[in-house]
Every structure is written in structure tokens, then in C-alpha cells.
């Protein structure tokens, strides 16, 4: 019963987010601030993780190829497929659920605890539109983060593969080009957009409707990470089933 109520309150929140818009000039500033906090502020950690995980994928693939019949270019091929199809869009989004999601929940939750959201409502401002809508717009730029993650993941794989002595540069690049299906890029960015929406709205919902004090803000942040991750994994399964299994 509680879950049904939660789902209902999430969708009711979405309805309110898109109604009674905030003054355009104020909204513009809020959107730029959110782009800075959520997108630009995440680039460092995304770059770091992507580069090294890409490297690990290449090394692991190379080390597990003990059959001489398997071509050398498989290292590049496996790195490309792993990074583009799953690592960059899905697992980077789960990492972002921890970074961006917790930030969103704790910042909105703190505003709830300190009556700042009540202050907005009393002033006649649609607090959901003011707080959540700019985050949704900012996360429209999330695919750029994932594109950077894809690039750096593959670059990391190339560096680890070539400079680690596991494969040659030519073989790695051949693997990157082998059996390339452009639709996989469409699939990856399509699910990235879905994850971006989940990343913006689920943590906001957790923060906005939390009750209690500082301790509950922490609990809401944890719940936010759990729910965002679960929804990302579930939607990943559904989208993959719908788009790739034909």
C-alpha cells in the first residue's frame, strides 16, 4: 500500500513540476546554476572513473584470451562494446545516482527541514517548479557527460592495452571499427535520456517529501540512491529488451 502511495505521490509531483512556471529570468539563472552543479561539477569524477575502468576492461579482456584462435583486435572490440553499451550509460548513471542524486536529495531535504520550501510556498511560488524543473533541464545535458565517459573509457582501454603490451594500437583500433552498429549509439543515448530524467526526479521526490530533521535528510539520501539505482537497472532492462532483442 505504501509503495502505491509513493508511486502516486511521485507522479503527482511530476504534474506540479510542470505547472505554474517560475519567472523566466529567474528560471534561466537557476538552470545555469544547476548545469554548473550537476553537469560541470561531475565531469572530474566521470573522467577519472571512465578512463581507469576502460583500462581495466581492456586488461581483463586481454588476460582472459588464452585461445590463439581469438583475434587480437577483440580487446578493442570488447572495450568498445562494454563501454558504449553498458559501462558509460548505465554504470556511470548508477555512480551519478550516488553523487548527483545524494546532492539533490540532501539539498532539497535541507530546505524542507529549515522551512525554506515553506517560505517559497507562502510567497506564492510553485516550489516544485522552482526546485525540480531546472534540474530536469540541466540534466538534458547529461548525454554530453556520457559521451565524454564513452570517449575516455575507450581511450583508457587503448592506453592500457597498447602501453601495457596486451595489444597493438592497430589491432585495438581495428577492434573499435569491427562490426560497428550505429544503432547501438542511438540505444545508448536513448537510455541515457531516460536515466537523466530518473536522476533528476527521483532524488528530488525523496528530498521534497521527506519529514523530520538532519538524520532523516541522511536517510532520504540513502533511500534516494537505492531507488534511483533500482529504477535505472529496471529501465535499462526494459529498454534493452525493447530495442535490442529483435
Amino acid at each position: 500500500m505504501k509503495y502505491i502511495e509513493d508511486i502516486g505521490s511521485y507522479f503527482m509531483m511530476l504534474g506540479k513540476v510542470f505547472s505554474s512556471p517560475t519567472k523566466t529570468s529567474v528560471l534561466k539563472e537557476l538552470i545555469f546554476k544547476e548545469i554548473n552543479d550537476l553537469i560541470i561539477g561531475s565531469l572530474g569524477i566521470v573522467a577519472f572513473i571512465s578512463f581507469f575502468v576502460g583500462g581495466v576492461i581492456a586488461i581483463q579482456t586481454a588476460l582472459n584470451m588464452d585461445n590463439p584462435l581469438i583475434p587480437d583486435y577483440l580487446v578493442g572490440f570488447a572495450t568498445r562494446q562494454s563501454v558504449i553499451l553498458e559501462f558509460a550509460p548505465t554504470f556511470m548513471s548508477i555512480i551519478m545516482a550516488g553523487k548527483v542524486g545524494s546532492f539533490i536529495t540532501s539539498s532539497i531535504g535541507s530546505m524542507r527541514v529549515t522551512e525554506q520550501i515553506d517560505a517559497l510556498e507562502v510567497m506564492g511560488i510553485n516550489s516544485l517548479n522552482y526546485l525540480v524543473f531546472p534540474k530536469i533541464v540541466a540534466l538534458l545535458f547529461y548525454p554530453f557527460v556520457i559521451a565524454i565517459s564513452m570517449f575516455l573509457g575507450i581511450l583508457g582501454g587503448w592506453v592500457a592495452g597498447v602501453y601495457g603490451g596486451f595489444t597493438s594500437s592497430a589491432s585495438f583500433v581495428q577492434g573499435l571499427q569491427e562490426e560497428f552498429i550505429p544503432f547501438h549509439i542511438v540505444y545508448a543515448f536513448l537510455k541515457t535520456m531516460i536515466f537523466a530524467f530518473i536522476l533528476a526526479t527521483v532524488p528530488s521526490w525523496q528530498g521534497y517529501y521527506m519529514k523530520g530533521g538532519a538524520l532523516e535528510v541522511g536517510k532520504a539520501s540513502t533511500n534516494s540512491f537505492v531507488w534511483t539505482s533500482v529504477l535505472i537497472i529496471l529501465s535499462n532492462y526494459i529498454v534493452t529488451q525493447l530495442l535490442l532483442s529483435s
Partner: peptide, 10 residues
């Protein structure tokens, strides 16, 4: 409105 804790935007 003057809130108990001030409710200023941090």
C-alpha cells in the same frame, strides 16, 4: 512571513 528559524535561503 517570518519563520521560526528565519528560513533564509542558505
Amino acid at each position: 512571513m517570518l519563520f521560526q528559524g528565519g528560513a533564509l535561503f542558505d
